[in-house]
Write a protein that binds this DNA or RNA. Structure first.
Length: 504
RNA sequence: GGGCCGCUAGCUCAACUGGCAGAGCAGCUGACUCUUAAUCAGCAGGUUACAGGUUCGAUUCCUGUGCGGCUCACCA
């Protein structure tokens, strides 16, 4: 018959009540620490360094050791009679605590110590030393409870393995799995390095609307939301592009934004409904300039964060050092599928040619989609080393300028590394009349299938009519860049709270 | 949306062909003053995801549902 005490949660609540009954606040308001665990270890090492003795003594190390204080979560306790060890973890790292001869603590602390659990947050004051085995340790002279934990932590050795639980309760994943922590630290550093790179090049960071009357700049299905006071629907942005180019018209010549965009589409290992996109626009540049910038950016960020441009992604060794290979989409597809799509200029002709390759030749697909199918099936998975796929069919690129003298080819590239599309860029179409025609064509094509609420953005066209300088634009999927640099196979491993179906 | 796989104690995992659901960690009690996956002795802990079905008997076989993973489709 299960007693209430069998439940860990119930036991912890009882401890909580005991503490309160003894006049201890289990959730006090503040604690001042003098060091992080990492700083404490550094201080210990500095004091031990040869020649540091004199200096250290003058700072308090030596016979009379400096009292320091730390705060963090207890992740392990090893009780051994009168002495006990505990592991204390804070945001910087981990250090061992030694509670020596706990009998000598006064009554209240002795009781408190008995009720300490793995998971509790405590503050501890004491002196640094090394144990017999050389472990940096804080010999605790005084300690206090800063927050009582009522839930048992995942197992210390295997960590938390249940994928669903890891995503839904990411805080447990972060506590239990240090590799996961490292990934998200790297993510932060990557974004910070990207910002530095752009800032140093004289780009200014801008913020543009998330709520938009129509979602443009890409052909993805948007999320719809509603504004009560205005009593009208808005769309969550699917790209940053159209507002950025308005700013180029407005005279900001180099701009970028790192922001979340939302696409109401399938979820996969490379797609999350909301993800982080870097977009940048540079006046008077074209897509070749953007290529140079991107390869330098990725190499620089990798060097900043990983200290190298040679990385491992899955089973592949990848070298990010510029220059990256440049190959036309046509050649890449021809190389890997044997089909020169230029020779099959109609959807039916191309579909006919594709049949022999046993690929999906959905009759609903237009020519551009068939080309895309060829690329995704044959070329992309084999593009491991950094590659710029350049010169896309205009029909796949409604916002890109076409190549001089080539009506069907747009100055556009995608960057593929490790089989991941990490960037998409083009020489921006700045001819307002042609842009209007391209939009109209898109409208026609979309009409009927219309999952996408595609409307012509008249305000954008008006902006173009005032005159936009030639401009090179870039979009980088930050999450995929993080996947690449942290060697993660799924986008959910680089997004703290990936979208999951609601439980129950 | 389709296909395949998974769901057992708080966590990590066992349980043969259908035959009393088990271990380690965490927890509780006790021993132990340098441990670090501490050790030792004992105790407790289960709606086997959920709902049905087959069977003398189901964690195991079947059907459905939920959630997750992989994959295909969708996604310039």
């Amino acid at each position: 018959m299960p007693s209430r005490l069998d439940n860990i949660n119930e036991q912890r609540r009882q401890k909580l009540e005991r503490l309160r009954a003894r006049g201890i606040d289990p959730y006090p308001h503040r604690f001042r620490q003098t060091h992080t665990t990492r700083e404490a270890i550094a201080a210990l090492e500095a004091a031990e360094a040869p020649g540091a003795a004199t200096q250290a003594r003058s700072r308090g190390f030596g016979q009379e050791k400096e009292e320091i204080s730390l705060a963090g979560r207890i992740t392990a306790i090893r009780r051994m009679g009168k002495s006990s060890f505990a592991d204390l973890r804070d945001g910087a790292g981990k250090i061992q605590l030694l509670f020596q001869n706990t009998d000598q603590f006064e009554e209240e602390k002795r009781e408190l110590f008995k009720d300490l659990d793995i998971g509790d947050i405590i503050g501890a004051g004491g002196a640094l030393l090394r144990t017999r085995t050389g472990e940096p340790t804080l010999a605790v002279h005084d300690f206090s409870l800063l927050a009582k934990s009522l839930q048992p932590l995942p197992e210390k050795w295997h960590g938390l393995a249940d994928t669903e639980k890891r995503y839904r309760q990411r805080y447990l994943d972060l506590i239990a799995n240090s590799e996961v922590r490292e990934v998200f630290l790297a993510r932060s550093q990557i974004i910070s390095a990207v910002r530095q790179f752009m800032d140093r090049r004289g780009f200014i960071e801008v913020e543009t609307p998330v709520l938009q009357p129509s979602a443009g700049g890409a052909l993805a299905a948007p999320f719809i939301t509603h504004h009560n006071a205005l009593d009208r629907d808005f769309y969550l942005r699917i790209a940053l592009e159209l507002h950025h180019k308005r700013l180029i018209v407005g005279g900001f010549d180099k701009i970028y934004e790192i922001g979340t965009v939302f696409r109401n589409e399938g979820i996969s290992t490379t797609h999350n409904p909301e993800y982080t996109l870097l977009e940048s626009y540079e006046a008077y540049a074209d897509y070749t300039d953007v290529m140079v910038m991107l390869e330098e950016m990725v190499a620089w960020v990798s060097r900043q964060v990983l200290g190298a441009t040679a990385i491992k992604y899955g089973e592949h060794d990848i070298e990010l050092k510029p220059p990256w290979r440049r190959v036309t989409l046509r050649d890449a597809v021809r190389e890997h599928s044997g089909i020169d799509f230029v020779k099959y200029p109609t959807a039916s002709g191309l579909r006919e040619r594709m049949r022999s390759l046993k690929v999906d030749t959905d009759p609903d697909k237009n020519w551009a989609r068939l080309v895309d199918e060829l690329y995704k099936t044959f070329a992309r998975p084999r593009l491991i080393q950094p590659t710029f796929l350049i010169d896309y069919p205009v029909s796949m690129s409604p916002l890109a300028k076409n190549k001089p003298g080539e009506e069907r080819v747009a100055e556009r590239f995608q960057a593929v590394v490790g089989g991941l599309e990490i960037a998409n860029a083009y020489s921006e179409l700045n001819d307002p009349l042609e842009q209007r025609e391209r939009f109209a064509e898109q409208m026609k094509e979309r009409h009927g299938s219309d999952e996408e609420q595609w409307t012509i953005d008249e305000d954008y066209l008006l902006a173009l009519e005032y005159g936009m300088p030639p401009t090179g634009g870039l979009g980088v999927g930050i999450d995929r860049l993080v996947m690449l640099l942290t060697d993660q196979p799924s986008i959910r491993e680089v997004i703290l709270f990936p979208q999951l179906r609601e439980k129950q």
